[in-house]
């Protein structure tokens, strides 16, 4: 088990967003998190990443209790976050965006160029645009940069928030290919998506959230075979 969140409660100010969320992700597993808008999927990811402090509950990552730990420490321990609005550093170049994750203790020059080469192989367009400001990239390119930026952290688990939102079908296929490639590499992914068919295809298991709690958990294959549960909670 790489991640185990138990009975997590999170508030934004006075509003109670997560009402006891429990989620587990196995090492190298791709887990989908489905649900309608505003049920707390993004907040779940932010809470795991240490960007929202849980009021109650515990989060164990890679065998250690990380509840309440600062985000920058979690990033160093192998947790990466790809937010739904991508949050590219707009005035930094593509290379500088990648350097925010590359320039860290324990990464020597050789390893550094290896990692850079690897993400440029996965996303050749980023190599072409390496000296271009992040804000000038198209939506799809920004999404690739956001994923590449997470990859250079050499994470054990990537929290991937709606990576295909607003993208053209060709881009969606490319994002899907990269998720599958990361899966083959043994990187675990907790995937939040509105695109139900895609989530069911790339995930091993799926959680369905409603009003701040997990209502249903099942292997993706089971939901693919019998869509009535999906229909009940998501109306699709």
């Amino acid at each position: 088990m790489i991640l185990a969140a138990r009975e997590v409660h999170t508030f934004y100010g006075k509003s109670h967003i997560l009402h006891g969320v429990s989620i587990e992700v196995g090492a190298g597993e791709v887990v989908g998190l489905l649900g309608r808008n505003g049920v707390g999927k993004s907040t779940t990811l932010k809470t795991i990443m240490g960007l929202a402090r849980p009021a109650r509950g515990s989060i164990v990552f890679d065998g250690r209790d990380i509840t309440g730990l600062a985000a920058h420490r979690l990033a160093r321990r192998g947790l990466a976050w790809v937010p739904e609005d991508r949050r590219i550093f707009r005035s930094l170049t593509v290379l500088e965006n990648l350097r925010t994750g590359l320039d860290r203790a324990g990464v020597d020059a050789a390893r550094r160029s290896e990692l850079l080469e690897k993400v440029y192989r996965s996303f050749p367009v980023l190599a072409e645009r390496s000296d271009q400001a992040g804000g000038t990239l198209s939506g799809g390119e920004q999404q690739m940069l956001a994923i590449a930026r997470a990859m250079v952290l050499e994470p054990k688990l990537i929290l991937l928030d709606e990576p295909t939102e607003g993208l053209m079908p060709r881009m969606i296929a490319q994002i899907r290919a990269i998720v599958e490639a990361l899966h083959r590499e043994g990187i675990a992914i907790l995937l939040v998506e509105q695109n139900v068919p895609l989530t069911l295809e790339v995930s091993d298991r799926v959680y369905i959230m409603e009003k701040g709690v997990v209502r249903h958990a099942a292997p993706a294959a089971e939901l693919r075979a019998d869509p009535t549960v999906i229909h009940r909670y998501l109306g699709v």
């Binding site: 985000a71 920058h72 990033a75 937010p83 550093f89 930094l92 952290l153």
Partner: peptide, 14 residues
């Protein structure tokens, strides 16, 4: 520069 632009994302990058 990264922290100036987006301190939350900067923290998430370590």
């Amino acid at each position: 520069r990264a922290v100036t632009q987006d301190r939350v994302m900067a923290a998430a990058m370590g």
